[in-house]
Amino acid sequence: MVPKTKRVKHRRSQEGLLHAFPFLLPSLLGLLVFSALPLVISAFISLTDWNGLDELLAPGMFQEHFVGLDNYKNIFASKEFWQVLRNTCYYIVLYIPLMLITSLAVAQLLAKKRRGVTVFRVIYYIPVLTSWVAASLIWKSVLSPQYGALNNLLALVGIEGPGWLLDETWAMPAIVLVSVWKDMGFFGLILLSGMVSINPSYYEAASLDGAGAWSKFFRITLPLMSPVIFYVLIVSLINAFQLFPQIMIMTDGGPNGATQVMVERIYKYGFRYYRMGYASAFSWILFVIIMICTFIQMKCQKRWVNYDT
């Protein structure tokens, strides 16, 4: 009978909390210190013209630097913000469809039970393992106009390649290509997990009806893996808004601002120009944009995501 009374005791919430607390303590501290408090402080900083150098907790500091919503107004009034937003959207519009198509292709290739498929899986995943910094350096070298691999390969087939990262028109498409190259293995494997969980009897039934490979792909595979595709779209869109290391290493926002994006601006305002208030306001705008986009995606999912398998 001892265990039973003990279990009943456990159900009493106060004692439960007492038991749970020591286990929760480290992560609760972390939540407070690394998430909740910074969030609140960031909101306050975004209302100031603080430069990041003066003592934050000095008396009168907040009154002295308080500027209300000026940072937000200035950001929305600046031409730069809209240019940066356009650049980010340009990246997203190119990146998301290309990434989705290549990852679907990767998943489709890896879903087949063919000889050598494990080798392909390892190879496709190597770009994912590489850090963004190393990958960006490698591609900076590959894309170097005169001495790089890509333009010299193109020259072999008689095409004169552009200046890529040094060319205002081609810099962003080049960043997109590199990002697709880096991410296709990652999202490909996520999509693969959705693809292999589809019940094979659907395909058998379709075969009996004389369906071809393409119609099977569009009529069965895509609809049945729509929840995974949805997940990939959510994650990749959030990641796309936070595009940063590849920009820093490959173009540093150039040429002529063609690859300036939101996080790059936040970083530079905060840590190069020491305008912490402005940078914080910028980061809140980014936060809100991400939330709105995620919300819209969630709302739209009913129309196309199919949860009954």
Binding site: S27, L31, F34, S35, A36, L37, P38, L39, I41, S42, I45, G52, E55, L56, L57, I238, F241, Q242, M262, V263, I266, G270, F271, M276, A279, S280, S283, W284, L286, F287, I290, M291, T294
Partner: peptide, 23 residues
Amino acid sequence: LYLATMMIPTQVTMIPLFVVMNQ
């Protein structure tokens, strides 16, 4: 609450955290 914090981009928290780490 734990899960909701995953929505917060690191860019929002990094400036205050930098300040705290610095001080």
